[in-house]
Amino acid sequence: MADASAGSKSSDRPSVTSSPTAGQAASATPSDGSGHNGGDAGNGAGAAVVACAVEGLGFSATSEDEKGGSVRHLLLTVTNTGDKKCLLYQYPYLKFTDARSPIAVIQDSKDAPVTLAPGEKAYAALLATGGRMDTYETNTIPLSLQGPDAGSKAGGPVDLDLPGQVAFDDGARVTYWTTASGLALRFIMSS
């Protein structure tokens, strides 16, 4: 996949910068357990909330396209399956193994980190194709979580199962995490 950040800024499209790739199931073991955490994971009042880790989360991807058609618009959902609050930073870091760069983020979707209490969900929207080159077809995508600093890892990657075979190209884009699925999708549905 070519670098999606180059030449992507135009007045009729949201601005993008490089971002990571998506992953899979809640029970997956991250390849890198290090990462930033916001402090102590204690339960007392005033205890700092730590960065979310894949071990306490469930992941899914659903198509937002018409049934039977090709899949271009995806909604990524993460659910806190643990027993403590955690912070979900930045956006899903989605990068295929042989790609030169991660999938670009839509900067206009930037929001504050999402605090996920047990059982709560957060969303990111993923546009698989932007009508460009270097098409890559797959039914999974590697997803890593980020720490407070863009590009820092809070664990992962996990292989996220996609709803069938999806074609990606170097125009793929992803949004920041948010608690409103409709808000995330607003950034990709017109593309």
Rank of each mutant, 00 (worst) to 15 (best):
7 G>V: 13
185 L>Q: 09
178 T>V: 13
16 V>M: 11
110 K>L: 10
142 P>I: 07
90 Q>S: 08
9 K>I: 14
137 E>I: 03
134 D>T: 00
18 S>K: 10
156 G>C: 10
110 K>I: 14
115 T>D: 02
13 R>Q: 12
181 S>A: 15
98 D>C: 06
110 K>V: 14
52 C>L: 09
170 D>S: 14
131 G>A: 14
182 G>D: 15
30 P>F: 03
45 A>G: 13
14 P>A: 11
15 S>L: 02
146 Q>T: 01
77 T>G: 05
186 R>E: 15
79 T>W: 08
115 T>Y: 02
79 T>Q: 14
147 G>I: 10
8 S>L: 04
60 S>K: 07
101 S>A: 13
81 T>R: 15
150 A>H: 11
92 P>E: 15
38 G>D: 04
170 D>T: 08
123 Y>L: 02
162 L>S: 01
72 R>H: 10
108 D>M: 00
28 A>I: 02
91 Y>P: 00
77 T>I: 06
185 L>W: 05
132 R>M: 11
125 A>R: 06
90 Q>Y: 04
130 G>H: 06
132 R>Q: 15
49 V>S: 01
1 M>E: 09
84 K>Y: 07
171 G>C: 03
3 D>I: 10
88 L>I: 01
127 L>D: 00
148 P>F: 08
160 L>K: 01
115 T>E: 12
157 P>S: 10
25 A>D: 11
28 A>W: 09
144 S>V: 06
26 A>N: 02
86 C>N: 03
4 A>M: 09
150 A>G: 05
27 S>R: 09
171 G>N: 06
109 S>A: 08
183 L>M: 10
181 S>V: 04
28 A>R: 06
81 T>S: 08
171 G>R: 02
28 A>V: 03
49 V>G: 01
73 H>T: 02
23 G>H: 05
99 A>F: 06
13 R>G: 04
125 A>E: 07
75 L>P: 00
190 S>C: 01
147 G>D: 13
11 S>D: 13
187 F>D: 00
129 T>R: 15
39 G>K: 03
59 F>S: 00
98 D>I: 07
44 G>W: 11
107 Q>H: 03
179 T>P: 05
114 V>A: 02
90 Q>L: 09
147 G>V: 08
146 Q>R: 05
136 Y>I: 10
107 Q>F: 01
25 A>W: 07
169 D>F: 10
112 A>C: 00
50 V>I: 06
169 D>E: 12
69 G>N: 14
143 L>S: 12
107 Q>K: 11
134 D>M: 07
38 G>M: 03
103 I>F: 08
75 L>E: 08
60 S>Q: 07
182 G>H: 07
17 T>A: 14
117 A>W: 04
125 A>P: 03
43 N>E: 08
174 V>F: 08
75 L>R: 12
167 A>T: 15
20 P>R: 14
87 L>T: 13
61 A>H: 05
166 V>S: 11
97 T>A: 15
59 F>A: 01
145 L>R: 02
93 Y>W: 13
132 R>Y: 12
172 A>W: 11
171 G>F: 10
24 Q>K: 08
185 L>G: 00
161 D>E: 12
168 F>R: 03
145 L>A: 01
105 V>H: 10
3 D>C: 06
93 Y>F: 10
110 K>G: 04
187 F>M: 02
66 E>Q: 14
